[in-house]
């Protein structure tokens, strides 16, 4: 919706339309358009040849991995890029490709720096395959979330698997009876019933909920009884920033034995991640 002042707001109405009249009377052409559309919106997972070979060789067509880390949003992916993936011991091994109404437009200004990169990329350590990282910065439509999770988790062996999700969220979506602006950014956690490890931050309080990819991943893990935890970072800054990225540091401390966290972020990567937002905010540069 565009308002009087021209800004675009996503508005939710709780008014529900009555279902459209029975669709059975629609003609063949409508049906074909509908199925073409569905085809176009389908989610594809691609692996590099080496990983694809090992997938094909495995008896149950899945990858073995003990830790699956999924980062959603620019700050969460930025954190992984600057603190973990910068160590050169990581290879990109695959990606998820999908199309929806927001693909390829790049109209959102913070997307400028990320336009050239594919939107969901998998990484694995060169010398060990026990950790799989997925970086996701693209918009995944509501009807694609379930499919994304089914297809990606279809490639990963469930036995011995543990999932960690890092995700960004604007502070305006956090509901709380007292003001929290002085303590931002902060982390909140949500875990599946099978996750027994000590949490490193407070639980997400009622009545807050999570939506989008983190919710889809957690729901899947909950029903499949996979241990999973979500660390959601609430920040009042709308563009990627280094302070918000640093907030995720404690979230991975329980994994410190298998994932080495650089004590300092890689300056080059950080600079590249933050550049897009800096130039946008200053009309003289």
């Amino acid at each position: 919706m565009a308002t009087f002042f021209g800004e675009v707001l996503s508005v939710y109405s709780r008014a529900v339309e009555e279902d459209e009249e029975d669709l059975s009377c629609e003609n063949e052409e409508d049906e074909r358009i509908r199925s073409d559309m569905e085809q176009k919106r389908s989610v594809q997972v691609e692996w590099c040849p080496q990983v694809q070979d090992s997938l094909d060789a495995a008896s149950d067509k899945t990858l073995q991995c003990s830790q699956f880390i999924i980062a959603v949003g620019h700050n969460a992916t930025g954190f992984l890029s600057a603190y973990i993936l910068s160590s050169r011991r990581w290879d990109s091994v695959g990606s998820v490709s999908l199309w929806n109404e927001r693909s390829g437009s790049g109209s959102h200004r913070s997307d400028v720096a990320f336009q050239e990169q594919p939107s969901c990329v998998f990484y694995r350590q060169k010398d060990s395959s026990s950790v799989l990282i997925c970086q996701c910065t693209c918009y995944i439509a509501e009807d694609q979330l379930f499919q994304w999770v089914e297809k990606v988790f279809g490639c990963v062996q469930k036995r011995g698997l543990s999932v960690t999700v890092l995700s960004d969220c604007p502070l305006s979506e956090f509901r709380c009876s007292k003001s929290l602006y002085s303590s931002t950014p902060f982390l909140r956690a949500l875990k599946s019933s099978a996750y027994k490890t000590q949490l490193l931050c407070p639980l997400l309080e009622q009545p807050n909920i999570v939506t989008g990819l983190p919710a889809a991943v957690l729901s899947y893990c909950q029903v499949q009884q996979i241990p999973a935890v979500l660390y959601q970072c609430f920040s009042d800054i709308t563009v990627p920033d280094s302070v918000t990225m640093e907030t995720y540091k404690p979230a991975l401390s329980s994994l410190s034995t298998i994932i080495k966290l650089d004590p300092c972020p890689n300056a080059d990567i950080l600079k590249r991640l933050l550049k897009g937002s800096e130039t946008q905010s200053n009309m003289y540069t």
């Binding site: 509501e142 009807d143 979330l145 379930f146 499919q147 089914e150 949500l190 875990k191 599946s192 019933s193 639980l203 997400l204 309080e205 009622q206 009545p207 807050n208 909920i209 999570v210 939506t211 989008g212 983190p214 919710a215 889809a216 957690l218 729901s219 899947y220 909950q222 029903v223 979500l230």
Partner: peptide, 29 residues
């Protein structure tokens, strides 16, 4: 649970929690 692709995914802690312990229970859509 009813696990289906027909509903928009959402997750939260136990909406009917009465104590701190029962709050840490993931609930789905």
């Amino acid at each position: 649970y009813l696990h289906t692709d027909c509903l928009i995914p959402m997750a939260g802690n136990n909406p009917y929690a009465v104590s701190g312990e029962s709050a840490a229970e993931l609930s789905t859509n």
